[in-house]
Design a protein around this nucleic acid. Structure first.
Lengths: 342, 342
DNA sequence: ATGAAAGCGCTAACAG
DNA sequence: CTGTTAGCGCTTTCAT
């Protein structure tokens, strides 16, 4: 019931000074073997647990990483989190985690709360519009390392980046659909008015259309939060527009899986009546019927590299990693039907 | 560049004492409005951020929750995490998160590291065999609150529980399959030698068979980590045994989705040739083709209640919640074929 | 090899 | 209302 169990009590029990207990725990080589053993025993008998926060304060350092993801319910960011954790465990770091739910206001508050915990670094999944300045400032003041993931490094940023070229990947996918003969291509894409990577995917789509001389039609571009329900609803609408798309690029696998469901519900065959493509290559993408054509992103690796970068000492140089994002062709996409359209 | 930016500097800048700054931040009503304003300004100009860890130490409390999940890559535990986070944000709590990957040794080390951070409470997803004693001891010493989730409250435990009856639910599902006429029912289930909730699901299956007078056959029970790949592989084996099952209960939706894929690959129709049932009702379950019959578990709610329980003061009574887990019948299960079997 | 003492960034009790 | 003082749990010189 003694709620206060500190190093001093261990010292008393072991008949040594506080300083010796500290040394016995951190650098046993500087203490006689017998003392180390006495301390170890006292620790165990009392059930003492070292207070890492107090230690961090005194050393003026921190061994905690702050990680902000859009949502923990998306397995994709779970993979990144997983990657982060595999790297931190060894280094004695812990992970403070929070989710923004695509809300910029909430995000700022969460960043603040992580900073209040004196995290060594902040790993951010993209930077919401309106927060770039704050993040830049934090990175410049160098009181905390900043690592932005899932986004391409920007040349003028002082933060580190671990991502890939969302625009290029989306362009590649759109071009592939065009190569299949599609000219009426719907897009379901994340909240591009807030999230840079969603906007980049939209950009890639636009560029591909432009290059192929296909006019951009805002009517078949749907902005949705990346979820199954949203994908289903958006697809449903797309399929009900006149002159409906013969292919739909759902720029997130969850949206695409939702779209697949909508197509089935309407009795449309995929890819016979309409092709559907995703983005991210979540593990579950290849388990769909038909298996999803998508863009492969190594979410796990992003996490691993980000953690490594984040754990570097303050003042270490900024690092930029641009990973691959390859087109993976599976069964959900196919050539346009000869007598296509409606 | 001044890496040390503390309250004292703010005090100097604002021409007040350290204590006044502290008061201005925590109880502005006890400080004159003009002083509060001066402090606010000094804080802003210096870019000072409050140090919450130092505050926690001094107050002898903690506003951090430690959460242990099997893996962050499973959207299901992501839901629970999500539920936890919605509750913590308001209360000023932060979440330290770690993943065990179904490894008891690693789990013990992670618990230790969370305790070293002086978390207020530990939210554990089940208790791995071999750790019950340690967890019990922690709960009894009451230096940290313990909330076990995803598992049924045990009568003799001093920890809090937020879960549901895994055994009952698995029994229910198995009985449903039996009612459909199946008598040869395969089981793909989580690592029951380590994880209690997997073992309870296995138990439920056994009991249902027993009641129906169907002999238990270890050959058609596969113990696998809950993953897509594992489900696919296990299903593949099950379908290649002689006298193969006419129904397979994959006691985790990921396993079931993998099983669905295996069936398709072998040209088997579901539920025509073989029925497949899952467990958990992940969001993606109803998006499969055919939609998965499964057990609905409210992972999000588990997280919310767990967080609430966890945030209660040390010494608060233990709480036990047993949530519902209902059978959800969808398209992946059906009556046995008249001329069934091979 | 060990101890005494100063101190990290903050809070709380006590004066004034 | 505000300042002074003691001190949380730990680390780290500096002596011995």
């Amino acid at each position: 019931m003694k709620s206060k169990l500190n190093m001093r009590e261990v010292a008393q029990k072991a008949n040594v000074s506080l300083a010796t207990v500290s040394r016995a725990m951190h650098s046993p080589d500087k203490v006689s073997a017998s003392t180390v053993e006495r301390v170890r025993k006292a620790t165990e008998e009392l059930g003492y647990v070292y207070n890492a926060t107090a230690g961090d304060i005194l050393r003026g350092r921190s061994t905690v990483l702050g990680v902000l993801v859009p949502t923990a319910s998306n397995a994709l960011f779970g993979e990144t989190l997983h990657g982060i954790q595999t790297m931190t465990v060894g280094g004695g770091y812990s992970v403070l985690q929070a989710a923004t739910h695509y809300d910029a206001d909430g995000e700022e508050a969460l960043i603040e709360s992580l900073l209040q915990r004196r995290v060594h670094a902040l790993i951010l999944t993209g930077v919401t519009y309106g927060l770039e300045e704050r993040v830049e400032q934090l990175a410049r003041e160098a009181r905390v390392r900043i690592v932005v993931v899932w986004e391409l490094p920007k040349p003028d940023m002082t933060a580190s980046y671990v991502g890939f070229d969302n625009m290029e990947a989306a362009r590649r996918m759109t071009e592939y659909l065009i190569e299949l003969g599609h000219r009426r291509i719907g897009l379901i894409v994340g909240p591009f008015s807030k999230i840079a990577r969603a906007r980049h995917r939209l950009e890639g789509y636009r560029i591909a259309l432009e290059r192929a001389g296909i006019p951009f039609d805002a009517d078949i571009v749907k902005e949705r939060s990346p979820g199954l329900l949203e994908g289903r609803e958006a697809m449903d609408r797309l399929m009900r527009t006149e002159d409906r798309p013969t292919a739909v690029f759902a720029a997130s696998d969850l949206l695409a899986i939702g779209a697949l469901k909508a197509a089935r519900s309407m009795g449309l065959s995929v890819p016979g009546d309409v092709s559907v493509a995703g983005f991210d290559d979540m593990e579950v993408a290849s388990y769909q019927e038909p298996p999803l054509t998508t863009i492969r992103v190594d979410a796990y690796k992003i996490g691993q590299i980000a953690a490594q970068t984040a754990m570097e000492p303050l003042g270490s140089p900024t690092r930029n990693y641009c990973l691959d994002a390859d087109l993976v062709i599976r069964g959900s996409t196919g050539p346009i039907k000869p007598g296509g359209g409606r």
